[in-house]
Amino acid sequence: MPSAPHLRWIYRAYVAIFFLYLIAPLIAAGAFAFNDSLFPSLPWRGFTLDWFFSPTEPKLGLLHDSRLLRGMGNSLYIGLLVAALAVAAGTSNAFLFERKQFPFKSTLYILMIVPLVIPGVILGISILVFASMIANFADRQLGLFVTWLRPGIPLIVLGQAAFLTTITSLVISARLKKFDISLEEAALNLGASKLRVLMTVTLPFLFPAIFSAFIVAFLVSFENFNTTLMLVGSDAPLTITMYDRMVKVGSTPVLNAVSVVLMLGSGLLALASVLVQRPSKSA
C-alpha cells in the first residue's frame, strides 16, 4: 500500500524491529546457558557447556540436576498420556460431528469449542474442586480413599486433556472434512467390511492430522503452566519445578540450559509436524 520509497523503508524497518522484539527474549534466555558465569547476566566470561554437563556444584549441570530431570520425566509422561487421550477423544469427536446427524448438533458443537475460551486457571480449579467433591464423598459415605482424585499426575492429565481435546478435535475434523466419501463407498462396494474400510482407507487418510494433533497436544501439555499449577501434587512437572526455582532460589544459568533444551525440542517437534502435514496439502 505505501508507494513512496521512504514510507516503504519506514514500514520495513517497523517490521524488522517487531521481529527483533519477538526474538530478543528468546536469544537472551538461550545465550546465557553458554556463559561461564554463576549468574545469567553480563559480562560475558567465555563459552562453556558446564550448565549442561558439569557434575559438581556450584555449576551443577542440567544432566546432573536430579530435580530438573525428574520434572522432565514427569512432563514427558504426562505429555504422552495427555496427547494419547486427547487424540483418541478428538478422533471420535471428529467422526461424531462430521459424519453423524443428531439433535442439538450445533449447540453441542459450540460446547465442544467452549473449553478453549475458559481460562486455564479456572479450568484447573474447577477440576480440582469437582475431583475433591467426589473424593470427599467417597471418603465420607463409602470409606474409600481415592488418592488419584487428589492433586497429582492423574488430575494434571485430566485437566490438560480437558482443553486439548478441543484442539485435537478441530485439527482432525478439518482433515476429515476434506475426505472424499466416494473412496469409502468404492471400498464398501468392493466387499470390504466397515471396520476394514476404516482401518485401511479412512484412518490412513487422517494420519497426518492425527500425527500433528498428537504433537501439538504433547507440546502444549509439556509447556502448560496455568492449569497444571492448580492440580500439581508432589510429582511436579518441569514447568512447575522451573518456576519454583525461579521464584524461590533465584535463577542460575541452568535454567537457561533448560530453556535451550525446551526451545530445541519444541522446534524439532513443530518442524516434524509441519513436514508430515506438507505432502497432504497437495493431495
Binding site: P25, L26, A29, T239, M246, L262
Partner: peptide
C-alpha cells in the same frame, strides 16, 4: 518466524524478559 515463539513456553519467554530487564540484566 511469527510462530516460533508460539512453540516456546510462556515460562521461557518470561524468563528471557527477566534476563533482559532486571537490574543486573542485559
Amino acid at each position: 518466524m511469527c510462530l516460533i515463539p508460539l512453540w516456546v513456553s510462556d515460562l521461557v519467554r518470561a524468563y528471557g524478559w527477566i534476563v533482559l530487564l532486571r537490574e543486573t540484566g542485559v
